[in-house]
Amino acid sequence: MNSMSQSAPLAVGRRRPSWLRLPGRLIPGRSLVASVPTLWLGLFFLIPFAVVLKISLAETAIAVPPYTSLFEWDGAVAALSLNLGNYQFLFEDSLYLDAYLNSIKVAAISTLITLIIAFPMAYVIARATPGRRVVLLSLVILPFWTSFLLRVYAWMGFLKKNGVVNDVLLSLGLIDQPLTMLQTDFAVYIGIIYTYLPFMILPLYSALEKLDDSLLEAAEDLGCRPLQRFWLVVVPLSLPGIVAGSLLVFIPAVGEFVIPALLGSSDTLMIGRVLWDEFFLNRDWPMASAVATMMLLFLVVPIMLLRNGQGRKEEAA
């Protein structure tokens, strides 16, 4: 602690003397705090991504690791060879585009259904008494105490031909032939929605919790019917929660591999499975890396731009 930071609290609420007003970046501690996430991002995102990018420009080889190196050094001449063939191939074979589009479709539908299910749940939790709220929230988080993989396996037990759901329906006489649910798109949607529901509920809850009751009363007083009140007041005010929750569900759902692999059928074409096949069946690391890089460009960049634009709008407002 230096004298400057000690005197800073005194300045709260009134204008600091000009000699105390420093540009933000010079205030000690601030850059230190900011460096932690920057370092995190660099270590666990940028460096691994650079490695993936590097592999995507190599060629496959029967070696350990199974790709060529980009740099050749024969003692006198350094040569750099970049192979763009993998990216070219991505556009030549319709498989990849189909997989990207289908992943986006599955993720979008799942996100929408998750939102529809999560919204009333979050609303009820946010409106509950504080004591109840704790219980309800811990119920939302409780499934995380069990491994994700085991929970997907549990769904396999539920959905299979002689599984729990069919047994119950059969014994109730509602059906007389077991339904085929496992290894269908239906099972994939169930798996994704089930898995990502908490990621939607929590941001929605935090947005709805801040909702001021007096605004709702005001809307009512001004003649809003309940449904109108919902659309005109609740939804716009919880929009940040809706956007955050939807992104938290949509982004991982696009790249989802485990759920379609265990619950889906072989024709559930998703980019996560294409990646797995490139990596494990083809042993084509460069191609797998190219698929991953393109996925990032296709999905993350537009979303980042969107977030950025929104942030600016909020700042402006």
Partner: peptide, 19 residues
């Protein structure tokens, strides 16, 4: 060979996904 493997897996993916 690695070259045939790629053709093979490509064909396999098409078969599995019904495309």
């Amino acid at each position: 060979t690695a070259k045939f493997d790629r053709l093979l897996t490509r064909a396999w993916t098409r078969v599995k996904t019904g495309r």
